[in-house]
Every structure is written in structure tokens, then in C-alpha cells.
Design a protein around this nucleic acid. Structure first.
Lengths: 126, 126
DNA sequence: AAGTATACTAACAAAATTGTGCCTAAAGGA
DNA sequence: TCCTTTAGGCACAATTTTGTTAGTATACTT
């Protein structure tokens, strides 16, 4: 289950279970996408580039600070691209990198699950 | 993007953007699967039922307390099933409910992304 | 001259999450 | 009789995350 190839080599059998589990692609993915806002921000960038303020309006409960922090981390992890236009007032656009766009499948399956889970639980009550 | 049907009815246009964004299936899904360990635990239950201790060994960094809390929440959200065998010493088995199993697609796409992201970033350095 | 807009940063405070250590029950084995 | 096993509970502490408030720069508009 937790195989992750390194330079085409499978993980060595010798590796202990702890180190090995940390190399699981799912665990790896989760480590990059954890945090309250990461997936929400990615979700909002799926449709295309957005400015800082647009993101803020699209995610009503996030604070400026948290949006900044989240974007910085996503940028560091190569998921989000930050493009600064040298004008005044400042204009900064955020978009998904190639890696970030790779999350489209994840986002859509998450959406599918959300929809059907929501329905099933509604029906269970009714 | 953020459509979620309620009993076959689309979300009313009248709803404000804040409430609406909270009804987005992706936002909904993320709200259920947020938290540091949720997805990791689900990931470990994909292959089949596991006992408390097995999960604990499979997730070396989780503490008993966090595993308990995480399982409780997943149970409340109808994602995980808890089956108690009345024997001594106690035997409790955790498994994915139908809703939980619906996450298989999410988990595998997450795994795919983890794998390719990992590779791309390695190559970028090399 | 004052106000507006944009995209922030910094200092600090509060809240949520996570971790640690110790305790329990009940049966069986040494 | 004491130790082991399993699946936790409970109190407290530390850490991380999140939120609040105030402030910055620059040009344009009124």
C-alpha cells in the first residue's frame, strides 16, 4: 500500500516501519495538504488565477493573515504560483502550478464524495 | 462550482455567499476530513477492518488519545464503524462504513498525486 | 488635504489541537 | 500473587493554529 519509488527504486525492505510509512504517497500528500485552509484555497484556484482580494472574498471566514500564510506554504511546496505585477496599487495573482493542477482529480473526487455523503446522511435522517 | 443539491433542489440564489460557500460539496468534505489524522486513519482502514492496536502500530506517530478522538469523530460522521466484541481482554474492530468506503477514490487520487508530486520535485532538484 | 484601493507585515492574544503520564477492568498464565 | 493484554479514560501541559488589531507603501481621486 505504501510504496513510493525513489529514483525508480522501491523503498528498501530494510527501512523501519515508521520511516516507511512516512514515505507512503498518501501520507506524503496529506502532509502537504493538511491545515485548515490548504484544500479550500486550492479549490478556489482550480477555475483559474485569482487575486489576493478575490480569494479573500471567496473564502469569507479566512483572515488576511491565514490566507497569506496558506498561500506562502502552498507556494513553497510548489503547488501555487505567485505573480507580482509591478503597479500601484499592487496587483498579485495566484494560480496553480502544474503540480497544483494535478490536484484536480483529488478535488473532484472530494466533491463527489461530499455530495453523496451529504445526500446519504440526509436520507438517513428523513 | 459550489453547487450542492438539497433534496433535489439546487441551492437558492437568495442565499448569501458565505452560507453558500459552506454548502459547497468540497468545503463540506474538507470539513469532515480536516484534522491531522483523519485521512491517515481512513487510509489505513481502506484495506479492511483493523483493531485499535493495529491502527496504532500502523500509524507510529499517533498517540492513543489522538487515535481515540479521531476514531470517535469519524464514527460520529458515519465514516467509520466500531464493533465491540464482548470478550476479555477487549476486542474492538474499526472498519469503513459505506460512506467511508466512498473515499477510496479520494484516497487513490491523493496517492497518485503524492507519487507524481514527489517525483517531479525530486527531478526538479536533480 | 484627505480618502480609497491593494496587498501585505508585525505584535500580540486566544483558541484549538496534540501530546504525556498515569489509571482502570477482567481473564489467563507464570 | 503478580504480570500481561487490550482498549481506552482523565487531567494537565505544550504546541500549533488561528484570530485581532494596527500599521506600511504608493498613486489616484475628490
Amino acid at each position: 500500500m505504501c510504496e513510493m519509488e525513489i529514483n525508480g527504486l522501491k523503498m528498501p525492505e530494510s527501512m523501519d516501519e515508521k520511516t516507511r510509512s512516512q514515505l507512503c504517497p498518501v501520507v506524503y500528500a496529506v502532509s502537504k495538504l493538511g491545515g485548515k485552509w490548504k484544500l479550500i484555497v486550492v479549490h478556489n484556484l482550480i477555475e483559474g488565477p485569482k487575486r489576493f482580494g478575490e480569494l479573500r472574498r471567496a473564502i469569507p471566514d479566512i483572515t488576511q493573515r491565514m490566507l497569506t500564510l496558506t498561500l506562502r506554504e502552498l507556494e513553497e511546496d510548489g503547488i501555487v504560483n505567485r505573480e507580482v505585477f509591478e503597479v500601484v496599487p499592487p496587483h498579485v495573482e495566484y494560480s496553480l502550478t502544474e503540480i497544483g493542477q494535478g490536484l484536480e482529480t483529488v478535488m473532484s473526487s472530494l466533491g463527489d464524495w461530499g455530495r453523496s455523503n451529504f445526500q446519504q446522511r440526509r436520507n438517513a435522517v428523513a
